[in-house]
Design a binder for these strands. Sequence first.
DNA 1: GATTTTATGTCAGCCTTGTTGACTTTCCAA
DNA 2: TTGGAAAGTCAACAAGGCTGACATAAAATC
Lengths: 170, 170
Amino acid sequence: MAEGGTGPGGGGESLLFLTDDQLRRGIEAMFFAYRGFTADPDRILAKMDYGRAHHRALHFINRMPGTTVTNLLAILGVTKQSLNRVLRSLIEDGLVESRIGSRDRRERHLYLTPKGQELERALSEAQRARMRAAYRAAGPQAVAGFWQVLEAMMDSESRQQYLALKDTRG
Amino acid sequence: MAEGGTGPGGGGESLLFLTDDQLRRGIEAMFFAYRGFTADPDRILAKMDYGRAHHRALHFINRMPGTTVTNLLAILGVTKQSLNRVLRSLIEDGLVESRIGSRDRRERHLYLTPKGQELERALSEAQRARMRAAYRAAGPQAVAGFWQVLEAMMDSESRQQYLALKDTRG
DNA sequence: GATTTTATGTCAGCCTTGTTGACTTTCCAA
DNA sequence: TTGGAAAGTCAACAAGGCTGACATAAAATC
């Protein structure tokens, strides 16, 4: 009882934040927060004939205009058959344009059309609004910690993809 | 250049952390981190005939022994048909026990059997191990910020459920 | 006591989004 | 010129969401 929040061994940092209860709290926070995170775009998508998979494709095509299908596959972590079904509907509906590569004509380079940009904008603005509110409520120091923990939670491959995108302007 | 991290207007807090780039960073961090968050239990579940839905049911039955079906429904946010499919297989396989309520005999109270506890333990330990590593890498201050932002991101109903669980011992 | 409401379970059917496997077409590069 | 990579397609399947309809038991209410 004498130690309070300063740590047991006097070794400097407290390890109280590593108890099973604190870990469980993080697990449940991730579960409930992710539900909120997806809720707003999901409502928009439900009105059209699209799902979360379409949103993810639109997001990353917007972030990496001209990306190839193979690259998108690696980022999304799904099979090409699964992605292809999504891409096909986006292309048919005129949201995504697929251009044959000039250097390597086997490759397809993906771009959002103006219509695709419009939907992407609506979806991401809904998501940004919630993120903005959360940032504002928590403050800049909390946001820095939020990034740190999430980054440390990623698989190394995801982390590399995340870091590669991090300093890229949208 | 002169302002650094102290903010533009001298109004106290910097608002640099609210730029669209910082919001986008949070969005992508959630996407990639959630993938890591579910990866380890998913690998265990894939060996058995279970999925993420079974994991979620096991988690919350473990956290709230004796909970009713209706309560679990509210927490998981799915339909009773969807939950029932999952519960039926867990009960058939002897991981979950469903006891008729003593006060209200319409209610079913749900408990993990020893076998269910064993699987839940394996799944949550995999998830805790990753969370522990992330906490350790980021440090206690970052963890506090991580909780704050996630909590602010939840819908109010989810937040109430989260807070109700937060101070409950497992 | 009769009626209504609540809690649960179940059947049927649908959708999205993931999977594997087999196969074709295109086309770069050795 | 031929092997193999990149892209796309078709078929089949599964998990896990959904809606709607319906059944049953028990509690609550009139």
